[in-house]
Design a protein around this nucleic acid. Structure first.
Length: 882
DNA sequence: AAGGTCACG
DNA sequence: ACGTACGTGACCTTT
């Protein structure tokens, strides 16, 4: 069966451009529209399996439509340069895909497509037209299906004439009438003012066409009648403008449109230029990439037992050490081998098993030796991974991963494969290419493995001076050497120790939850009248909105929204809804915090050993995984009970928690220099109450709980990079009221307003914002022409220095506390960091000392214009330390 | 693999 | 007019 796909190239390119964030490759070339276009092509090829294929483009700016109506497409914002520069690339892309392309001076892509579909109709050939433009629907017919992009780019809605009938109650031919009446703002087609889609559809269902509507205008009542009469000519012209011209002088030679699939070479080369790494991997084009790029020859010696013995005691000078721990979680992952890059040139590869033989003693000593400096990649992960094998790591002098992260924390990953490209060094294959992924993961033969790890070690040696110089240039050396780098070891220490979890207590909690859940589920099924999967938002939506007929509050891109906010609004309509909310709450506790946590308790230690990611968060915060111990419930009492199972390792010890009070607002007071806000903190006032007093202009005695709540929300908003919409959502007030609040706030806290303006300006000039300790975040989208992208970047510019400085401060405190604890030789241990809180376990006899030491160090970690305040509490478990 | 939901700061 | 609050990770279902 033959099938022709026709793509409106301009339409899809701009859809892709606006749907995706502004990506760019390392040479600054923007690539988001090309990327979106690529995924669209791949999807179409896979799903539609076309035998014929064409992409049509608009040619030139003036089309025959301008001859009739010179304002056509007037008022439309100019195509942003970030998009224009991608058109040549898209044409190159289409060519590399082996797809035909066409343009004709004076015509738009939709005219070409309209003409070709007419020919196809005549020949009875099946066609799919792909566009983002609803006008295209007029082309639908027995053989022609229209695929319109949905919100994003990856999904399309298919329209046959029947589907158009279903959705609009119109025939394809009436689409032009629809446009004639309602117009189209984006093309500057006027239509009839005051007539939108709803009204237009009503008239068309009644009269059929624009002409008939105009002829029967007298039957229409009200003001609309006058408008119709007044704008009759506009309507006729609008219809004409919206009508796709289907007689372009073009002949369809089917054999020229034949599509035989794509070849990897051309596409691979283009993807490499654009740096579409994920697509290279996905299409398995990586292999073909490796021939082209020079991968330096490298001398690898695979060390065996004899050689190891010979090396003992006189290890050659080493420049870099690569330790390969495979798997996501280094606490359970495998150490498979290490490679040494030697100063004299060449590399040594040592398989993991070899470290267990007696001859490995000297090597193990060297790995552990604090006085033998090493450059590594991800020391923290290596230290943890080796720890479970009984191997100590010491003397790391430079960590390439942390340096790469600091230099650009927004990069999604910092693999060595990428870093080689980023810094124009000889390529190293991606781990996925060597090991495979998912079910296909396999450690390769010893030669391949040795070569791969050696390449990494050699690359580390070359990256070190480059990254070090970059850090110096960005004035980040102190941030690196005095904060992030020492912190890595502190984190490794905390993780190796782990935290004790009372499994029995957890199981008991699980039993109680299970019973409560069972009861709830039974009741819900009864009230709903049927059994269904309560965990499925889709099935739940069907029950609530279709079967029970509750009002739809909000939609998601796939269907009805059933989140807690929606359910709370629905609760008054039907009693079952609050049971569902209840179920959700308990089910979350059960699956994530009881079952999930139980799975993470190690048999050998009876503890959970979280893994802190130090190189993920764009703001400089840590994140915690396997399990995440930074989101243990606290806000609701039912959940908070989970904290009771986190207990000290030893009898008679206590849990001690110390948290910064309002650290982000204190940071804001400092960096904005706002006198009023500084004053509030200097006098140790309740900052939300103080905000309420100043914003509402009342004395403290007049601030009620509601005013304080609103002031608190405004303060949160300020920290997040405020918008009236966001605040209105949060406070459930109108946007206007929210805007007034904000204005009132800024009128009082002038320094904060100045900061917000200033930091956005700074982001525009420099392309980045910084924290107090010089941590950077780049914001390439701050100058985007797309409103959403730009606004997001602006809010990020306001938020990142605040959140990031708070992160700097607690990290600094952790490093200092670790030092102090070592110096004082305490037995107490630092266990957790939860963004503004540190958790310790302490022997009772050290309680007084720690109660004093911890807040003292935290409060003095960094001197600001306002005091830092820390609250300390302790108890038999984490719950009691409140 | 993606989307929805919800836990935390 | 545009459509969002900032930063994360885990679990479940659906594709």
């Amino acid at each position: 069966m033959e099938k022709l796909i026709l793509i409106d190239g301009n339409s899809i390119a701009s859809r892709a451009f606006y749907a995706l964030p502004l990506l760019s490759n390392s040479s600054g070339l923007h690539t988001n529209a090309v990327y979106g276009f690529t995924t669209m092509l791949l999807k179409l090829i896979e799903e539609e399996k076309p035998t014929h294929f064409l992409v049509a483009f608009d040619a030139g700016k003036v089309t025959f439509r301008h001859a009739d109506y010179k304002e056509y497409k007037g008022g439309r914002a100019k195509t942003p340069p970030e998009l224009s520069e991608q058109f040549p690339l898209i044409r190159e892309l289409v060519q590399s895909f082996g797809i035909a392309q066409f343009e004709l001076s004076g015509y738009e892509a939709d005219d070409i497509i309209g003409t070709l579909t007419r020919h196809a109709d005549e020949k009875g050939l099946n066609v799919v037209v792909v566009s983002g433009d609803k006008d295209m629907l007029q082309l639908a017919s027995e053989h022609v299906t229209i695929a319109l992009t949905r919100k994003g780019i990856s999904e399309v809605d298919l329209f046959t004439p029947a589907a158009i009938q279903d959705k609009y109650g119109l025939t394809p031919g009436q689409i032009t009438d629809l446009k004639g009446l309602m117009g189209d703002a984006s093309d500057n087609i006027p239509g009839i003012p005051g007539v939108g889609e709803k009204t237009a559809l009503k008239f068309l269902h009644q009269f059929g066409t624009v002409e008939e509507v105009l002829a029967n205008a007298d039957e229409i009542s009200g003001k609309i009648k006058d408008k119709i009469k007044e704008h009759a000519d506009d309507a006729r012209m609008s219809k004409e403008l919206a009508t796709i011209f289907r007689d372009v002088p073009v002949e369809m030679k089917l054999d020229e449109l034949q599509y035989a699939g794509y070849e990897g070479t051309a596409l691979g080369a283009l993807f490499r230029k654009l740096e579409f790494k994920s697509l290279l991997d996905k299409l398995d084009l990586t292999a073909s990439s490796q021939e082209g790029e020079e991968q330096e020859a490298i001398e690898v010696e695979i060390v065996d037992r004899d050689r190891l013995g010979a090396l003992a005691g006189r290890l050659p000078e080493v420049e870099a050490l690569h330790i390969e721990i495979v798997g996501e979680n280094p606490h359970v992952s495998d150490f498979i081998g290490l490679a040494l890059s030697l100063k004299q040139g060449g590399c040594l590869f040592v398989p993991a098993a070899l470290l267990d033989v007696p001859e490995a003693g000297a090597l193990r000593d060297w790995i552990a030796d604090e006085k033998s400096p090493k450059t590594v990649y991800d020391m923290h992960r290596a230290e943890v991974g080796l720890y479970w094998k009984g191997i100590a790591l010491g003397g790391v002098a430079f960590d390439v991963l942390i340096a790469a992260y600091l230099l650009d924390p927004t990069e999604s990953t910092h693999t060595l494969n990428e870093l080689a490209g980023r810094y124009k060094l000889p390529a190293v294959p991606a781990d996925e290419a060597v090991f495979g992924k998912g079910a296909k993961f396999k450690v390769p033969d010893i030669d391949t493995l040795g070569l791969h790890l050696s390449r990494k070690a050699a690359l580390l040696a070359r990256l070190k001076p480059i990254l070090n110089a970059e850090l110096e240039k960005n004035e980040m050396s102190r941030l690196y050497y005095e904060l992030e780098f020492p912190l890595a070891r502190v984190l490794a220490g905390m993780e190796k120790k782990g935290i004790r979890v009372d499994a029995g207590g957890l199981r008991q909690l699980g039993g109680e939850l299970g019973q409560a859940i069972e009861k709830l589920v039974e009741g819900i099924y009864k009230e709903a009248g049927s059994e269904f999967n309560l965990n499925s938002p889709k099935q739940l939506g069907d029950i609530l909105f279709d079967k029970l007929g509750l009002p739809i509050i909000k939609k998601t891109k796939t269907g009805y929204s059933t989140d807690a906010e929606v359910l709370e609004k629905l609760a008054p309509y039907n009693g079952v809804v609050s049971s569902i909310l209840n179920y959700r709450q308990l089910a979350k506790l059960q699956s994530t915090y009881v079952e999930g946590l139980l799975k993470e308790i190690r048999r050998d230690t009876g503890k959970v050993h979280t893994y802190y990611q130090q190189t993920i968060a764009a703001t400089g915060r840590l994140s915690s995984q396997f399990p995440n111990l930074q989101n243990i419930p606290i806000r609701l009492e039912e959940g908070r009970k989970i904290r009771k199972v986190f207990v000290p390792e030893e009898q008679g010890w206590l849990m001690l928690a110390a948290d910064y009070s309002q650290i982000e607002l204190r940071v804001l007071a400092h960096i904005s220099g706002d006198e009023r806000m500084k004053d509030a903190f200097q006098n140790d006032m309740d900052v939300h109450t103080k905000t309420a007093m100043d914003v509402f202009g009342v004395p403290e005695s007049a601030v009620d709980s509601n005013m304080r709540r609103q002031a608190k929300a405004v303060n949160f908003g300020i920290v997040y990079g405020i918008s009236d919409y966001g605040l209105s959502q949060n406070l459930n007030i109108t946007r206007k009221e929210a805007a007034q609040f904000i204005e009132q706030y800024f009128a009082v806290f002038e320094g904060v307003r100045r900061y917000m303006d200033e930091i956005v300006k700074q982001a525009r000039t420099n392309g980045y914002v910084s924290t107090l300790l010089a941590r950077r975040r780049y914001l390439p989208e701050i100058n985007a022409s797309n409103f959403n992208l730009r606004s997001f970047a602006e809010r990020t510019a306001m938020n990142s220095p605040i959140q990031g400085t708070a992160a700097d401060i607690i990290k600094l405190a952790m490093v200092q506390i670790d030092e102090r604890m070592k110096r004082e030789r305490v037995r107490s241990r630092m266990l957790l960091q939860v963004h503004d809180e540190l958790v310790f376990e302490v022997p009772e006899e050290e309680l007084e000392l720690m109660k004093q030491l911890v807040p003292e160090v935290m409060e003095s970690a960094l001197a600001l214009d306002v005091p830092l305040k820390v609250d300390v509490s302790y108890g038999d478990n984490w719950y009691e330390a409140k």
